[in-house]
């Protein structure tokens, strides 16, 4: 009797998470968490339109939730996700660049989108924006009149400086493009894709991206236009 060819080994030589798909899964899961955060962050910021009491009250709620622990749990989770997201993206990008050492003289895009092709540099813009945003509105840099806890006034101060508003708006468009590709792509990476609902998923991703761009850009525009003082 002949023995069959030995089937594929059960144990991999490299851990699952280090494989390309493993790192993509890390990127997808952390991306989903970060997407949930930006959505809730935008909705929370709508309190800007309800006046100083509403926004400062919302801020106090976040700072006192779970005796002040809630905010720190959120910060640790988000920071961990951001670090893992950037790590997986950076390492996969380097691998992909190495996969084509000699480029094409001529290459024409067909089914890829502007959003899918700008994920990496858009991500870099978002990374720089997040650092600026935390320095600006959480730690009070670039704003001489910053008062901790006086959130409404701090936001209005910040956005009255037009360069801050312009950077903010540019970053939100980068976020929109990032989400337009990222939100459907992450489900594909996690294995959820079916011709029947893929189109729906892509349209939902675009809808969320537009919602976030419009919602977030409305804050600096409202301040610059003088609707929010």
């Amino acid at each position: 009797m002949t023995t069959a060819t030995a089937p594929a080994a059960l144990r991999l030589k490299v851990p699952y998470v280090a494989s390309t798909i493993g790192r993509k899964v890390v990127m997808a899961v952390t991306g989903l968490v970060l997407f949930g955060f930006v959505l809730v962050h935008m909705i929370g910021n709508l309190t800007l339109y309800a006046g100083p009491e509403a926004m400062d009250g919302y801020s106090r709620f976040l700072h006192t939730f779970l005796h002040g622990g809630g905010l720190w749990i959120a910060r640790v989770v988000l920071l961990t996700c951001a670090v893992l997201h950037v790590w997986s993206a950076a390492s996969l990008t380097l691998d992909s660049w190495a996969a084509r050492p000699v480029g094409y003289r001529l290459w024409k895009a067909k089914d890829s989108t502007y959003a899918s092709r700008t994920m990496r540099w858009g991500g870099v813009i978002l990374f720089l924006f997040i650092i600026f945003h935390i320095l600006n509105l959480t730690l009070g840099h670039f704003d001489p009149g910053y008062v901790p806890g006086d959130v409404y006034a701090n936001v209005v101060h910040a956005f009255r400086q037009w360069p801050v508003s312009v950077f903010y708006i540019v970053a939100m468009f980068a976020l929109g493009l990032h989400l337009d590709h990222g939100v459907w792509s992450l489900f594909h990476t996690l294995g959820f894709s079916h011709p029947r609902y893929k189109r729906w998923l892509r349209e939902a991703a675009r809808g969320f991206a537009i919602l976030l761009v419009v919602g977030n850009c409305s804050f600096p525009i409202a301040v610059l236009a003088g609707w929010v003082r």
């Binding site: 699952y16 494989s19 390309t20 992909s96 996969a99 895009a109 067909k110 459907w184």
Partner: peptide, 26 residues
């Protein structure tokens, strides 16, 4: 086992990773 082993070999051969551009299907 097949999925795991083929992906492991695919990575070891030096191919890049998928970012869902859909250029391959096109």
């Amino acid at each position: 086992e097949r999925a795991a082993a083929m992906v492991e070999t695919m990575d070891a051969e030096g191919f890049g990773s998928c970012t869902n551009h859909n250029e391959c299907e096109a």
